[in-house]
């Protein structure tokens, strides 16, 4: 067992566990978007950031992937953590102001839309990749993928076309946190 602290409270976990796993086991709330217990962690949304002091230096890491180590001191609400989290929610909210899941997050953290708020988008995709990972790791058909990069990055199927391999199982729409997958799914299953 590995012993360390979260917000000053001593906690313990097995070797190989992540900070997020230990935190949730102990009832400490850390928000996530791209995390799902059935899938490999991906580390894209960065909502689950925490500050870790390993005795040498203090840095901001993502709790869903950071393996616990003896003696580390974890802060889930430090000013640096709060600043990252607030900005991520701000950016997400401005991208898809109508998404219920994002609205809920915004409400919890007291974030309101800014002057850069996008108009006309109800369910923007935030590229959390749950659908892609579910399609690959759970369903095993590897139809969905990330296409392109940067601001043009999007969830697609090859050639943006209907796929022969798609089973039409709908796992992707089920797991999608924002509802953006519905449209893509219609196109992919053909």
């Amino acid at each position: 067992m590995i012993t360390f602290t979260i917000n000053g409270k001593e906690v313990r976990g097995q070797d190989g566990w992540t900070i997020l796993e230990v935190a949730r086991w102990n009832g400490i709330e850390i928000p996530t978007l791209c995390h799902h217990g059935a899938l490999e962690p991906y580390g894209a949304c960065r909502l689950c950031v925490v500050e870790v002091n390993d005795g040498k230096r203090s840095r901001v890491v993502i709790s869903c992937m950071y393996p616990i180590r003896p003696g580390i001191q974890v802060q889930t609400e430090s000013p640096r953590v709060a600043n990252v989290r607030r900005w991520i929610i701000q950016l997400l909210l401005d991208e898809s102001p109508e998404s219920p899941k994002i609205q809920e997050l915004a409400k919890t953290f007291g974030v309101t839309p800014s002057r850069f708020k996008k108009a006309g988008v109800d369910f923007a995709c935030h590229l959390c990749g749950l659908c892609v990972r579910a399609c690959q790791e759970v369903v095993g058909v590897q139809v969905l993928t990330f296409g392109n990069r940067g601001l043009r990055k999007a969830i697609t199927s090859p050639f943006n076309a209907a796929s022969k391999e798609c089973l039409g199982c709908g796992t992707c729409t089920y797991i999608c946190p924002t509802g953006a997958m519905d449209q893509v799914f219609q196109r992919v299953k053909g």
């Binding site: 590897q142 139809v143 993928t145 296409g147 392109n148 697609t156 199927s157 090859p158 050639f159």
Partner: peptide, 24 residues
């Protein structure tokens, strides 16, 4: 497109991977 499909088939990688690489 047909060349990309042929490359993926030959190398034994899913077409979605070829597409991801080609657009990245």
């Amino acid at each position: 497109p047909e060349a990309m499909t042929a490359v993926c088939d030959h190398l034994g990688v899913p077409l979605s991977r070829g597409w991801a690489v080609a657009t990245f």
